[in-house]
Amino acid sequence: MPELRPAADFLDDAHAILRRERARLDELLAQPHELLLVGGSSVPGALTKGDVDLHLRVAAPDFRPVVAALTDVYEVVLPEIWQDTLATFAVEAPLPTGVAVTPAGSEHDLRFTRTWERLAADPALVEAYNDIKLRHRDDPGEYERHKSAFFDSLL
């Protein structure tokens, strides 16, 4: 795993990427949408490798048309994890950046919104998150397993 650093080191750049992508999506999408900064880089006390995670929320009926539109501007990533309520893309940006698209109110939407909101509001949860990252930084499979269980506990 790359070196972990405090998210505060990346927060200004992450917010600049968020603003740029909001402007891009406002021009591209006719459908109502909301683009959020989530992930480790969104929580100042969290440890991160410096990647930026964006979450695009759309109304359920707009999910498929929005995903189709995004395939023209973003690179599809991890198509094997795509589901009826999740699509993922890479965003060309100064930091490694991805965007996950979900219908508002779906299971994936709640996972992205609630977990990061709860984590950002509770320093003890940030400490627990950082501990998982530190303990399993050399074993990505174990890290993902423990992180997933931790996030499940936040729902």
Rank of each mutant, 00 (worst) to 15 (best):
L134R: 10
L47G: 14
A16W: 00
A87G: 12
L18P: 12
L28C: 05
S42Q: 05
T97L: 03
S41K: 01
F89L: 06
G98M: 07
P65E: 07
L29V: 00
E21Y: 07
L29Y: 04
E80L: 13
L18H: 08
P103I: 04
L134C: 03
A100Y: 07
K133R: 04
A121V: 09
E107N: 09
P6M: 15
T113C: 05
T97G: 08
K147D: 07
T48N: 08
I17Y: 08
R145E: 10
S106N: 03
T88S: 08
P32Q: 08
W82P: 07
H136D: 09
L110E: 15
E34R: 15
I81V: 14
D13K: 05
T97S: 15
D53L: 10
L37R: 01
T85N: 14
G45E: 08
V67E: 04
D12T: 13
V77L: 11
P79F: 06
R5C: 09
M1F: 10
M1E: 11
D13Y: 03
V43S: 01
H146F: 13
P79H: 08
D122K: 04
L35D: 09
D122I: 02
E92C: 02
E117T: 13
G105E: 10
L29I: 01
T85L: 08
D138F: 11
E75S: 13
P140Y: 00
E117G: 10
D84N: 04
T88I: 05
L36H: 09
P44L: 08
K147W: 07
P65C: 12
E21G: 00
H136S: 15
A7L: 15
R20E: 14
E144N: 11
A90T: 04
A128P: 01
D131H: 12
D109K: 02
P2K: 14
Y74P: 02
V101R: 00
P32G: 04
G40N: 11
A90M: 04
L134V: 15
H136P: 09
G141N: 15
R24M: 14
E107W: 14
V38R: 14
R137Q: 15
D139Y: 01
E117A: 13
D9G: 12
G45K: 04
A69M: 07
R135L: 06
A60V: 09
V58Q: 13
V67R: 13
L54F: 12
H33S: 03
D139P: 09
E117S: 11
L11E: 08
E75F: 02
V66P: 03
E144T: 13
S41V: 10
V67W: 07
G141V: 05
W116H: 15
P61M: 05
L54W: 08
V67N: 03
L56D: 03
M1S: 10
W82V: 01
V76M: 10
